[in-house]
């Protein structure tokens, strides 16, 4: 079996859940004969290595840099690949993963399989299923080893670990810095906390325009819910950023998630998949949101919204 290197994304020294899930997936993929290495690039926080017990070896790349820059992490990961020559490199398909996975594939001259939702090892090949076109299609692909895979969050789940493996301190990467962190911020400090609400009404591109958003707001008010949105709606400026659900927004776990006109791109599902009750309204019968929902209807959202609002107002009165 091939040796596997897993890039560990850190937030204030803590491995992200997606990275921990990936590490467990690597353990299963490597079997008993393959070695799993976790690689973390240090910044100004100490790395919590205790959580990386699924790895046989933990490589900490030195550095006291302020925050993440793609070029520093790219240099560190490339050096590790060229030094250790793993058969497979796994990177979580987060925003940081998106930033460096293709770059590192180009730097070391290896194929990249992106948006992976399933992985399998052949003798000299890596096979994957990749989720594309907003989750509407999947591609079965393969490439020769060594290779790099960017894996969607949620594909693997972290399991009990056996205690941290050997820890190796690697020197800071050598590169010419052309980018520099000026400041960092967290949007969680501002705006409404949508993660605290039990009831969420989410609007997607299918509501059409700001008038559609206003109808959804009326429904949210009638239900006593918070209004949230998918990325395209926020990008249009129809709903504020602090109400965005998904990869580039917040992860929520309400009792009710009523998705109206939401297509259900993988990046959105990542942020709401664990809601207690998901009801989807979308005229597109093939919309991926229906794969995550418990109940669904394909009726017109603009007809649906005022009808449900009126019904709820009557029911509550």
């Amino acid at each position: 079996m091939a040796d596997i290197l897993v890039y560990i994304e850190l937030v204030s020294g803590q491995p992200t859940q997606a990275s921990l899930d990936l590490l467990s997936g690597a353990r299963d993929l490597a079997g008993t004969s393959g070695r799993v290495t976790a690689l973390a690039v240090e910044d100004d926080s100490a790395v919590d290595t205790a959580k990386l017990g699924a790895a046989d070896r933990i490589v900490l790349v030195s550095g006291d840099a302020k925050g993440y820059t793609g070029e520093r992490h790219l240099a560190a990961l490339s050096e590790a690949i060229e030094r250790d020559k793993p058969g497979i490199v796994l990177i979580a398909n987060s925003y940081v993963g998106l930033d460096i996975s293709t770059s590192v594939a180009a730097r070391v001259g290896q194929p990249l399989l992106a948006y992976c939702v399933a992985l399998a090892l052949g003798d000299d090949t890596l096979r994957a299923t990749c989720q594309i076109y907003g989750g509407k299609l999947e591609a079965d692909v393969e490439c020769n080893l060594p290779a790099i895979a960017a894996v969607n969050p949620g594909v693997f789940q972290a399991s009990e670990t056996r205690g941290a493996g050997e820890i190796v301190q690697a020197a800071a990467p050598v590169f010419t810095a052309r980018t520099m962190v000026q400041s960092t911020s967290s949007a969680s400090d501002t705006g409404v906390d949508i993660t605290a609400s039990d009831l969420l009404v989410c609007v997607g591109r299918g509501v059409g325009d700001e008038d559609g958003v206003a109808l959804a707001q009326e429904l949210a008010d009638a239900l006593g819910a918070e209004l949230v949105a998918s990325r395209p709606v926020v990008d249009q400026g129809w709903v504020e950023k602090s109400r965005q659900v998904g990869k580039s927004g917040k992860t929520v776990k309400p009792k009710l998630y009523l998705a109206v006109g939401v297509s259900g791109a993988p990046e959105h599902l990542e942020g709401m998949r664990d809601a207690g009750l998901i009801i989807a309204v979308n005229t597109d019968a093939n919309a991926p949101i229906f794969d995550a929902a418990h109940f669904g209807t394909r009726c017109d959202v603009l007809e649906f919204l005022p009808l449900l609002t009126e019904k709820l107002q009557g029911a509550i009165a």
Binding site: A139, C299, D300
Partner: peptide
């Protein structure tokens, strides 16, 4: 091309959704 596309297909359904009526009322 760095890899090979074997085939494209619709996603395999992972949840059992219950569809409600398509009439909004």
């Amino acid at each position: 091309e760095p890899g090979k596309l074997v085939t494209l297909h619709s996603p395999h359904k992972t949840t059992a959704i219950s569809f409600l009526d398509d009439d909004p009322v």
